[in-house]
Design a protein around this nucleic acid. Structure first.
Lengths: 239, 239
DNA sequence: TAAATATTTCAATTATCATCGAAATATGGA
DNA sequence: TCCATATTTCGATGATAATTGAAATATTTA
């Protein structure tokens, strides 16, 4: 509510080096596990857990559980801004980055999550929809805007029939490889089905990985302004 | 050894009560001595000195030595803004104000400092010149802007001849009664001489104090938008 | 079910830091 | 020169809080 109360809270929490390191790491906007954050801040997981609990209580970070992992992220934009204001007068040293253990690149690039798109492609689609103002973020869900209704109609996705289904229409799903949210629910499923139907993507047998076809590359660029080819080559997944 | 220790360092400066009190005191934009700041923060001078050294290292405050005093002030506007965003919400313990030992009011209002104007009048003139964009602050000096050249010409001060003199053209001088900088150097001297010449001010014999004449009151109001009469009555020197 | 991994809780240790007395240093004034 | 004042440095103390090993809990995988 009050931005100022956050300011005071963050101030007291940032003053400790380990917490500052954790928060700086989280400024990438993504979610990270306790072990990762401990590694980045060069402390043991217990210590990181101790600090994260404090920051969770103070509502400076948010947590989301998924399996045996617990993903932590910056609470909101206000907190990030306070951190940035610090960085403006005390430029931060770089954060020690590390590479993930060798994991399948394909599954990070694009995959299914239950019945919707995930991985870099899933997140990029979601970001594109937000950027173009077709969907808007709510608490745990996305809502479709007036422009969005027209857009989904133009790509032959019928929203009214989707809303009749006995399942969540559209909710946020945390992406483990991207550490950002992507679009899930009936709408997410409809988008996946539509891309498969148009042959923009193909399932790779025996895995959850998705293959982007040449038509897909073209379509994602034209309709969503996403260049998956460039992303693929850059290998934006080492951090 | 933590990577982001600088962020933590700056943040810790605000979150510690004594330092917060000192910084709050300095947010008036003026310079204060160690003893004053210690008194305001209700700590011993040693402790204040300890904190001020830390903040000096972190480039959050600046120091200026003058005789056996050392004046501390906020480093810059950027720091002040960040501090204010914190302190406006969580104000540290109230600052104990105190009156200076009874000192001559006249000498605080207006006096000469070597060969230029000091005291409230000197500072006000300097602030007015800055506000109107006639002079601009450099590191330790003031520079005259394009508009300033025209202005000084209009009041019959010849800048080119001043620059030929073998002395500092225009430098900052810390005012002990106002705790702010005023304009010194050849330009400061020329301004003093001009005011004397126009009979806006008169020297009070045997002291460094300056008397403002009725013409001066009028002139300062018209040309510099300074109401010395009001300032005189309000007695803005108790703090 | 058992083993492996991720995270948290607990308790004990350790490190940090503000504080202030005492003493050193620097400066101004008589 | 001597004395008063302003400030800093040093060293000791005490309070607070970070850290981590050990153990508990939870969850996935085989």
């Amino acid at each position: 509510m009050n931005m100022n109360s956050n300011v005071a809270k963050v101030a007291s929490l940032v003053s400790e080096p380990s917490r500052a390191a954790i928060l700086t790491a989280l400024l990438d906007g993504r979610y990270h596990t306790v072990n990762e954050l401990a590694h980045m801040a060069r402390i043991k997981p217990q210590t990181a857990s101790f600090h994260l609990k404090k920051m969770l209580d103070a509502q400076v970070v948010s947590a989301e559980k998924q399996g045996r992992h617990r993903y932590y992220g910056i609470m909101n934009q206000e907190v990030a801004q306070v951190m940035e204001s610090f960085l403006s007068i005390a430029p931060a040293a770089e954060i020690k980055s590390f590479k993930h253990a060798s994991e399948d690149k394909a599954i990070r690039l694009a995959r299914t999550c239950y019945d919707h798109l995930a991985g870099n492609l899933g997140v990029q689609i979601t970001e594109s929809l937000k950027r173009k103002g077709f969907i808007a973020e709510e608490n745990d869900t996305y809502s479709v805007t007036e422009e969005g209704i027209a857009f989904f109609h133009s790509i032959q996705i019928d929203l009214t029939s989707l809303k009749k289904k006995r399942r969540s229409f559209s909710h946020k799903c945390l992406d483990w490889s991207e550490r950002r949210h992507h679009l899930a629910g009936a709408l997410g499923n409809a988008i996946l089905e539509k891309f498969l139907e148009r042959n923009w993507i193909q399932r790779i047998p025996k895995t959850r990985a998705i293959q982007i076809t040449p038509q897909g590359m073209k379509g994602f660029k034209e309709i969503f302004a996403i260049d998956m080819d460039r992303i693929n080559k850059n290998g934006s997944h080492t951090f």
